[in-house]
Design a protein around this nucleic acid. Structure first.
Lengths: 235, 235
DNA sequence: CATATATACTGAGTCAAGATCATTATTCCT
DNA sequence: AGGAATAATGATCTTGACTCAGTATATATG
């Protein structure tokens, strides 16, 4: 077969592709997307400028390749990390920490990678969207499981939960990058989860807003009284 | 005084500046930042290309001017809108809706305006950051007031609350833009506020974290015991 | 091994668009 | 009116993404 014989050639080609992606990652990291020059990437990868265009259609495709690698790792690690955790709360806490750490670390690149597309109205058709979709599917499944296990409210649209979760984390990651000294990631995540768990309002108000809290209290005390009477009677 | 006499000249200059900003807004809206050409902006504003550079240092400064106008309106309307609202919950609901509507409407421009800076490590020194800071100060004050009135938990760092709020809204706005048909803004905001108010976990779990849950758990287990005894007795 | 053909690579050249600046026009003041 | 200050112009420069005609390398064939 002709194909079998091209094995080593193909390897060399793939190796070169990897070299270009690696060079691109480094240069994007250092200079951002607009600041990065194809010339520099080519030089770092040890190829001519034109060669870059044999492997990638344009600068954007190159960025996308870098982003794809990042998302692959991110998604794999997320799925792996929650596998053995006992309940929804633990899984969400893991995902929150995982996301914040990774995004905070590689933010410059990722931000540049994903934002232009997010902005456009054709985001859903873009490959960036698909990468993100696959990643976020891990989260979605945790929520669906949580709903099935009656750990998560069934009346919330998944999209709202997801947006709040990842939107909050993205902004939080930015804050962390801005003042790394003052902010402790564990504390931030704990507070983040606390709000998602118990809300940001103080308990009385929270109960009021939830509806029927007073009634519930009344019911409870009545039940207590009745139970007491029953117990007495039974004895 | 020389200054007094330059009044009308200054007016004309300011008018031209406004014309350029307006043209820039239109062109950015239509083509995005990278797609916008200074030549087109100049033409639309009725000036020569070079003139644009007399008023603005570069393309970025032009974008910043557009963003500044947007933020000014946004901040003013936010402050105005919450003025007469009775409590923290109402104010936050207003701010959420206000933010989501505006951001969803002018997203392409704003996204392009704010993201490059957000990405950089010097974001805090940037003018973009200051615009955002002033806007968000309205929210911060609502939260501080809420804490003083004992409506908002005092143990949450403001930055976490803020990041969750605006991060969630930004992602939510994007989702709305992506599927405008399927999503109703009022419903989205209601669910958004519900999570921030009562958490996303089902009430029992939420109660545990909220405190006062012990009592309820105690009551419940007593009831179970009693019920069990009653069932036995009934047999 | 030599030749032919296909595949991979190169870097000088093209082009588009942001920014500049010498030149020209307008306004203002005496 | 005349001259100084201010404003505006657009041809020109610069930069960097992208192209392509040409060269080198690898593979197949006689």
């Amino acid at each position: 077969m002709a194909e079998a014989r091209t094995g080593t050639r193909r390897q060399r080609v793939e190796q070169k592709e990897q070299a270009i992606i690696a060079a691109a990652r480094a240069v994007f990291q250092e200079h951002g997307f607009d600041g990065a020059k194809i010339a520099e990437i080519a030089k770092l990868a040890g190829v001519a400028e034109g060669t870059v265009y044999l492997y990638f259609e344009n600068k954007n495709a190159l960025l996308l390749a870098v982003a794809a690698e990042f998302y692959d790792r991110l998604t794999r690690d997320a799925a792996e990390g929650i596998k053995d955790l006992p309940d929804t709360a633990a899984k969400l806490t893991f995902l929150a920490r995982h996301h914040m750490e990774r995004v905070a670390a590689e933010w410059p690149m990722l931000g540049m990678a994903m934002t232009p597309a997010k902005v456009s109205d054709e985001y859903r058709q873009s490959e960036e969207y698909q990468l993100n979709r696959t990643y976020v599917e891990v989260f979605d499944q945790v929520i669906r499981d949580g709903v099935n296990r009656s750990e998560i409210r069934a009346d919330l649209p998944l999209s709202v939960v997801r947006d709040l979760f990842y939107g909050g984390l993205e902004y939080g990651a930015r804050t962390m990058r801005m003042r790394p000294s003052k902010t402790d990631i564990d504390e931030t995540i704990a507070n983040f989860m606390l709000i998602l768990t118990a809300g940001m309002f103080v308990p009385p108000v929270q109960a009021e807003a939830g509806g029927g809290a007073d009634k519930m209290q009344a019911v409870l005390s009545r039940l207590e009284k009745v139970a007491g009477r029953l117990e007495t009677a039974a004895d």
